[in-house]
Design a protein around this nucleic acid. Structure first.
Lengths: 164, 164
DNA sequence: ATTTTACGTCAGCCATGTTGACTTAAATTT
DNA sequence: AAATTTAAGTCAACATGGCTGACGTAAAAT
């Protein structure tokens, strides 16, 4: 009874540790995403545009449905954002060669330039955190975050991240 | 010249590694936050409510301005969410003892129950990832994520997470 | 007595998510 | 060849949760 509340109880410590790590994820994500927002504003874009730019850059020639699967949003939500990017010349659509129903997505040079500009600060931030933490810590980071990915499609996602 | 594009270039590898870790953070966060959303819907609450519930639970008696500082949103945004939680009896406001302008926030029993319900799946998920990754990996995870927190208030934030 | 601070409200706007219904063209199946 | 399924798009309406700006009140600090 008493040791349920005891600070020395391993069960309590475990839960407290979990909570801390959950908060850590919140704060890290909060500050990590804060960077690009300023730049995006100058272009009258938002985070949604950034996500599209990022994943099209990483997966040149991705189909719309694949992109939808990554972002986990509806095609109606995507279309608003995607249309803006296409109209303003950041993304180009080309019909698929084997399946001409597809409209495969590519970043234009302008789009690539923006991608680079947007990710620069983030890359510097992560690079600094990595340098300070060391290689082993980075390995741990990767392991734990991989474990947080939904088990059902973890393999697929990891494959995509690491480059098929 | 040539080795700028060479796959063996350490500079290229470094950048590629960074990109991978950035994506990892995106996917992990995406799947990590997906859990509570179902439960929240049953209550007609959203993620914003969850965040408030979480941080009030972790900082019983927190003032409104402190909460605003954590969430990094405007008081007008907070008020909508907070008022709903107070009206429906999940959160209680009490005037501060030393400073009676403050309306310190507390979770009611009902609020604590909801917090527990909401975090349960998340805690299980993180616990599983930790078990699979091992203690060293967890230490790395913590180190790297700490490094991603905005340098200016990192100390303050870490203090809050770890419990002053 | 004045100013500042903590908190609150009203009103309106914007970004980005949702559902549902319907279209078109190409690919696939029967 | 005809029917069905699939990839993608569109229109419309709505919800959530951010934002700005203006203004109010009570308590604390100067």
């Amino acid at each position: 009874m008493a040791d349920v509340k005891s600070g020395a109880s391993p069960l309590f410590l475990r839960e407290e540790e979990l909570r801390q790590c959950i908060e850590l994820l919140f704060f890290a994500y909060r500050d990590f995403t804060a960077g690009p927002d300023k730049i995006l504003k100058e272009y009258n874009f938002g985070r949604a545009h950034h996500r599209v730019i990022h994943f099209v850059w990483r997966n040149q020639g991705i189909s719309v449905s694949e992109l939808l699967d990554i972002l986990r949003i509806t095609k109606q939500s995507l279309s608003r954002v995607l249309n803006a990017l296409v109209e303003r010349g950041f993304i180009e659509q080309r019909p698929g060669v084997t399946d001409r129903r597809q409209r495969l997505l590519y970043l234009t040079e302008k789009g690539q330039a923006l991608e680079h500009k947007l990710s620069e600060e983030q890359r510097n931030l992560v690079a600094k955190a990595f340098r300070e933490a060391g290689g082993e810590a980075v390995a741990g980071y990767r392991q734990v975050l991989s474990g947080l990915i939904n088990e059902e499609d973890r393999e697929t996602v990891l494959k995509r991240i690491l480059g098929n």
